[in-house]
Amino acid sequence: MDKKSAAAVLDRLHTVFGVKNDSQLCEVTGVNRPTMGNWRSRNSVPYPLCVSVAEEKGVSLDWLITGEGVMDRSHRTNEDDALLDDPLERSILTLCRSLDEEAKRDIQSVAQEKKRLSDIEKQLTKLMLALADIKRPA
């Protein structure tokens, strides 16, 4: 797929909003489904939407429209610098950047699910400790 096609741009919009399909993208952007379908079928890039999303979400308009450069237009933080110092995270980032948008969304989805499960495990541990405190004889 051409990185500058309407489909590629819409796929990057999926990434920005963390959605999996056009219906979800329509919901978060307020665009009606037939309009989005027309963009895809006519290979018409929604430039006004891209500009407003870039402004609102702080993403690079160049990246959103062309797929070139980095997604986030904000300045790097100390945390970002720390990521570059960690060989494992640098390796993961390099691999991720080599993938197409669909593969990146798949990885994002798996990582979000892993994070959700980790958070649930932490909550469960806290609840088990609280329950054990309640059951202890005074």
Rank of each mutant, 00 (worst) to 15 (best):
V45L: 01
V45H: 00
V45F: 00
P46Y: 00
Y47H: 04
Y47K: 05
P48W: 00
L49W: 00
C50N: 01
C50D: 00
V51Y: 02
V51E: 01
S52L: 03
A54T: 01
E55A: 10
E55G: 10
E56C: 06
G58R: 02
G58N: 04
V59D: 03
V59W: 05
V59K: 01
S60W: 03
S60C: 10
S60A: 06
L61N: 02
D62L: 14
W63M: 03
L64S: 00
I65C: 04
I65Q: 10
T66H: 10
T66D: 08
G67E: 07
G67S: 12
E68Y: 15
E68R: 13
E68M: 07
E68V: 15
G69Q: 05
V70W: 12
M71V: 10
D72T: 05
R73M: 13
R73V: 10
R73G: 11
S74P: 09
H75M: 14
H75D: 15
H75Y: 14
D80C: 13
D81E: 14
D81Q: 12
A82T: 07
L83W: 15
D85S: 11
D86H: 08
P87M: 08
L88V: 12
R90Y: 12
T94L: 11
T94V: 07
T94H: 09
L95H: 12
S98H: 01
L99K: 03
L99A: 05
L99G: 03
E101H: 10
A103R: 12
A103W: 11
R105I: 03
D106N: 12
I107D: 02
I107S: 04
I107L: 11
Q108D: 09
S109G: 08
V110N: 04
A111L: 06
Q112L: 03
Q112T: 07
K114R: 05
K114G: 02
K115C: 02
R116K: 08
L117Y: 01
L117V: 05
D119N: 06
D119W: 02
I120A: 05
I120Q: 04
E121G: 06
E121L: 14
E121N: 08
K122E: 11
K122H: 11
Q123G: 07
L124R: 05
T125R: 14
K126C: 02
L127Q: 10
L127G: 11
M128T: 12
L129A: 12
L129M: 13
L129P: 07
A130M: 10
L131W: 13
I134C: 13
A138P: 11
A138H: 11
